[in-house]
Amino acid sequence: MSTAGHEEAAANAPTAGEYIVHHLTQWNSTGHAQKDVIDFSVINIDTMIFSVLMGVLGLFVMWRVAKSVTSGVPGRMQAAVEIVLEMVNDQAKGIVHSAESRKFVGPLALTVFIWIFLMNSMDFLPVDLLPTIWQTITGDHHAYLRVVPTADLNGTLGMSTGVLLICVYYNIKIKGMGGWVHELFTAPFGSHPLLYPVNFAMQMIEFLAKTVSHGMRLFGNMYAGELVFMLIALMGAAWTASATGVSLFLGHIVAGSIWAIFHILIVALQAFIFMMLTLVYVGQAHEAH
């Protein structure tokens, strides 16, 4: 009798492991969890929806401000946008010295900062809120949904690959195709036929390492942050009408508050770091070795 009751409960409520694995599975175009580690025929619908949503939201707000912008006394919204823009512009000026390039790099850095900040901020929503709503809407209680696009490696690597392409573009634009190829084979160790393959290998490793670490850094932070929120949620979910259970509930409140407050820092910091690295990499593309 008791064993049967236990089994029934286990069937209804997922175990901690199942809960986390379920929460970390993307809603993708196949309708089930992705089998292979790399499969380019699959696309994560949830990541796309939320990243586009956040991008459109951020840009829409800034666009509204830009449309009614005044050089006179600014309103609060305009002042807020101006503060961010000036911060980004100052950083861009300090790192990318070409004013011509800054016409694109400045807006790029601003977009990166605002967009990542908003995507990271999806972490502040209760971990079960949007998935539960989604499961209710679809009627499928096992429907997958992840709401933080930056906690999806595809999202962050997509952006860092974008930065890589921009770096390649500026390398060619500033140094010329020949100049850049010359640099690929002669830097960092020097111009000698024997050193050409070594130099080229180093350069390739450098580009790969930059791009992967750029994307992985953001992904790792947000993924870990999300995971901690899930663990805290599990703690609250395990509460019962016993002393241990109540203390778990209180632990959820305390740990959840502390982690959410700390996460505000991480959200802003990671957005800032991603933006700064974007500027640094583009700046490096402007400098000859």
């Binding site: 580690v37 499969d39 994560n44 790029l108």
Partner: peptide
């Protein structure tokens, strides 16, 4: 943490957003 085509979609979205900012947000401000 699987890799899939989302990466490329995200890449395209990235450029579209950056272009939009460059065109309509940054210059007036």
């Amino acid at each position: 943490m699987n890799l899939n085509a989302t990466l490329f979609a995200q890449l395209v979205v990235f450029f579209i957003l950056a272009w939009f900012t460059m065109q309509f947000v940054w210059p007036p401000i």
